[in-house]
């Protein structure tokens, strides 16, 4: 019997596919998310919009918050560690969380290196803006990738930019003759073996979710139609007028992303969406997507 194999880690991400993972900060929110059909929850002290508003250093959540959420739901529970903060990851693993998000939403703890994720039994998900970043994270042991987007903005434009970039680079790679593949790998600073595997598969070697700015059922369906495997919703649910209804609608939109009639129906009467932020109003040094190396 073997535990913590890459197949077991990446396998859980396969089980999450076509589903919605929702940020929650209390056991009550976690129940709302589970009842709405979330396939997992992300246990946090604050949602990204509040982290952005609060400023200062954002760290791993208090273990009590994570444990209380694990106690009330039967679906997988994820939690965030700072980039490079392998001790926060050790703590989260000891609590028994099902996935760790090494996340740019928190303040990075290391300005050069990410966590060596192969050393853990618990699987990791990491953010990426492009193919090179995605494959570097997989090279470090990540078993699932998500777009970075721009968290806490309710503005989907950056997530769109990131998934389009990854898909465009994969198409470009597929058209390359073999002798040009090594130079391509060097240019995007990605491990050659993973570049070759991506070329062979025509897709990332692991599951790839959308994250960072998804606020409506239409946003979720847009990301699915652009080629994502599932959806993370951070602030978009519990910063909206009617979280339970919106959560359910985003779950439906993620499954029936190709059916505009269903999307129209589930988009009706959802109340206020979260207030969005125009990306150009965020100074570059305050953009979370710039964190990670």
């Amino acid at each position: 019997m073997e535990q913590g194999t890459f197949r077991v880690k990446a396998g859980l991400a396969e089980m999450l596919k076509g589903g919605v993972i929702m940020d929650v900060t209390t056991p009550e929110q976690a129940k709302i998310a589970e009842d709405a059909g979330a396939c997992a929850v992300m246990a946090l002290e604050r949602v990204p919009a509040d982290i952005r508003a609060a400023g200062g250093v954002a760290r791993m959540a208090d273990p009590t918050i994570v444990q209380r959420i694990m106690e009330v739901v039967s679906i997988p529970v994820m939690a965030k560690a700072r980039i490079g903060h392998f001790v926060e990851a050790q703590i989260l693993e000891s609590l028994g969380v099902d996935y760790i998000d090494e996340s740019e939403v928190l303040t990075p703890a290391d300005d050069k290196y990410h966590i060596n994720k192969e050393q853990f039994k618990v699987p990791f998900v990491c953010g990426a803006k492009n193919l090179g970043e995605a494959l570097r994270r997989i090279g470090e042991g990540a078993a699932m990738i998500r777009t970075k987007g721009e968290p806490g903005t309710g503005n989907v434009v950056e997530a769109v930019k990131h998934i389009r970039m990854v898909m465009a680079e994969i198409r470009q790679l597929q058209n390359l003759p073999e002798e040009e593949v090594a130079a391509f790998a060097k240019n995007i600073a990605a491990p050659l073996e993973l570049v070759k595997e991506t070329k062979r598969l025509g897709k990332l070697p692991v599951v790839n979710f959308a994250a960072g700015g998804i606020a409506t059922p239409a946003d979720a369906a847009l990301m699915m139609q652009l080629g994502c495997d599932g959806i993370f919703v951070g602030s978009g649910i519990f910063k909206s007028g009617d979280p339970a209804q919106r959560a359910k609608a985003i779950v439906a939109a993620t499954t029936y992303y190709n059916d505009p009639r269903v999307l129209a129906n589930v988009s009706k009467d959802l109340g206020e969406a979260m207030v969005g932020i125009e990306i150009s109003n965020i100074p570059i040094n305050e953009r979370m997507q710039e964190r990670g190396w």
Binding site: Q3, V8, P76, G96, Y99
Partner: peptide, 12 residues
């Protein structure tokens, strides 16, 4: 979840 959480997941 009879065998436990993800940490306890396995292949055999």
């Amino acid at each position: 979840n009879a065998f436990g959480r993800q940490r306890e997941s396995f292949e055999a």
